[in-house]
Design a protein around this nucleic acid. Structure first.
Lengths: 344, 344
DNA sequence: ACTGTTTATGCAAACGTACGCAAAGCAACC
DNA sequence: GGTTGCTTTGCGTACGTTTGCATAAACAGT
């Protein structure tokens, strides 16, 4: 019948009341008689009335939209973060709009623009790998829209962010390896302009120093953290006159590469070389031996990011001071690093 | 300075022209002189003017929003589908709004409502596990909003959908196992009210029949497809007086369970028992032996879904007839099922 | 000097909703 | 009967855009 959607005005006309009355009735405003409310609700059902959030948003100056900008949606990490974000956001009455930057600053810039036009009330972002400056984010600030970074942040920038204590993760892993009796611990690290890799490496260094062990340059392999990089890294290490007795990799993928190479050479893990990765990817508990790794609290990270946004929203922009949430990593010891069969 | 966002009206006032002129200048309308356009653009930059999509959408009756409703965002499959969706959608100028039903019909209903209020121009949905009827989707249809299902669909329903040819996937896997010399092939299957599992099982049956092999009830294990289920299933199979010589599992998780159980018992894969899974999860190429599996074309599925939406959008609703896209699965043979070391 | 065409701009009405401010109706009170 | 107070409703306007139609100016052709 009515092919075009019914609006609040249609309801008003058919009921012989004013639009305001209908509007208020629909939102269960106290100043409307129960009789009228019921009439309105009834007709609304009949006409399949569908409130228009765009219009409401325009009028109220609110969109109930939360923007999320990530490098990409595949993979373990961002997926879980997004899940955490969606869960909390929807509880708070927000819908989320997702964009991928594809690890490209240009895309990132465009995405920011898009999100702003969509009138999002806040933006949660993890920077692309190629992002080195902050200009395009300044615009967000200027509009006084809450901006929360997660995981990937530009260091030394006064912004709200929720991050993992990557240094601690690196520190704990390495310390654990030391406790297992390892003395020459190699480290596979990633691009150093990314805070996460820098910090994981720092943790590694701190643990070594604390134990009075030397920092050996040739034991640190910097790469892109793929599985293939792991294979290559392992090959390099084994070619040394004095090979390591353990590897702490800043990524689970490269540690799997290392594992494969070791197996190919019939070396035993952890007896000959112990392994520890980072991220607690699904597959770490499916390999043989199972891989020690660090859980990044992905889902919690997403949740915290939303909560941070909600807090910022409450505050007057004058009072505003960027907050930072640091999540504690969770070292999961598995077979690949358990040399001492002893109890904990 | 200007703490509140600048609107098109502000631009108009400061330039001493009408709003319509500004509006047209911003959208590069041909009927506006270059001189004026430049003036407008310049001031827009200066004031950090940000177009308001809500307002524009309201006026134009378009939101450029595409709703996506999935059971959950974690895991391999939906993640990649969403990635595919986002990629194509954003190319077509659409933003996506994501909701999770958490495998719960009640949630699903609420999500549909939310998406409709947000004035999405289409909805891409994969049903929750607990959804058995279609009522809440009827509303979407009534509003003449393109509705596209993917992966999980109610059978026998006249809706647009993009699905994998699950029967073919099951058929190919089983046929492959037969070709490898297996004669007693077990099947781990999932909830039968879900079309995907039903079809994979059908493919399994078809392949057996075609090869003149009997369908043995005790070789079919129906479960929830977790890793633990896989372990249990394998135990049941090995307890048979006449155990199988291969397992085709409708999920990669349960096939890993099976693998673990076999290893525990020191049975060799694929020599004693060959294994094949489904979904091509990341870990399938990281286990030992690597697992044969079926790729579901996740990303392509997302892309096709968007394309289907775009087509539906073009058509007059009168001409409208639901289309169905069937993607062909891709059998990936790996070590776990390669008994014949021969060339292909 | 007249019409006709082009080019550049403005007017005003929408889109669907929300809300401040009045006003109407009605009862109760001194 | 006038004042007060309460409940219920309506009027009008605003949110920021877009767009059909009208207008004005400029210029060409006869």
């Amino acid at each position: 019948m009515a092919r075009t959607k019914a609006s609040i005005t249609d309801l008003a006309q058919q009921l012989g009341v004013s639009v305001s009355t209908v509007s208020r009735a629909l939102s269960d405003h106290p100043g409307i008689s129960d009789a009228t409310k019921k009439r309105v609700w009834k007709l609304a059902k009949e006409l399949h009335y569908q409130p228009n959030h765009l219009a409401a948003g325009l009028r109220k100056g609110r969109s109930n939209l939360l923007g999320v900008l990530v490098p990409h949606i595949d993979g373990h990490f961002f997926t879980l973060v997004v899940k955490g974000i969606e869960t909390i956001a929807s509880k708070a009455g927000y819908n989320i709009m997702i964009c991928q930057s594809n690890e490209d600053v240009a895309h990132e810039r465009k995405n920011i623009e898009t999100l702003l036009s969509a009138q999002v009330e806040g933006i949660l972002v993890s920077m692309s790998r190629t992002t080195r400056d902050f200009k395009h984010f300044e615009k967000v600030r200027k509009q006084e829209i809450p901006l929360v970074f997660f995981d990937r942040v530009l260091d030394g920038l006064d912004v709200s962010a929720v991050v993992l204590d990557d240094r601690e993760g690196g520190y704990q892993s390495t310390k654990h390896l030391i406790k297992q009796g390892c003395r020459r611990i190699a480290h596979f690290s990633g691009p150093q302009h990314l805070n996460i890799y820098k910090h994981r490496r720092q943790g590694y260094i701190d643990a070594l120093l604390e134990a009075g062990l030397p920092i050996v340059e040739e034991l640190i392999f910097t790469c892109d953290m793929t599985l293939e990089d792991g294979i290559e890294g392992m090959q390099q290490m084994l070619a040394l006159t004095n090979p390591p007795d353990a590897v702490f990799s800043a990524s689970d993928f490269s540690v799997v590469g290392a594992l494969q190479e070791l197996k190919r050479r019939k070396l035993r893990v952890p007896q000959d070389i112990a392994l520890a990765g980072f991220s607690n990817e699904t597959f770490t508990s499916l390999t043989e031996p199972m891989l020690t790794s660090v859980d990044q609290r992905c889902e919690q990270m997403g949740q915290s990011a939303v909560r941070l946004f909600l807090e910022m929203r409450e505050e007057h922009s004058s009072t505003f001071s960027p907050r930072r949430v640091v999540l504690q990593p969770d070292l999961l010891v598995r077979e690949s690093s358990e040399r001492v069969s002893g109890k904990k």
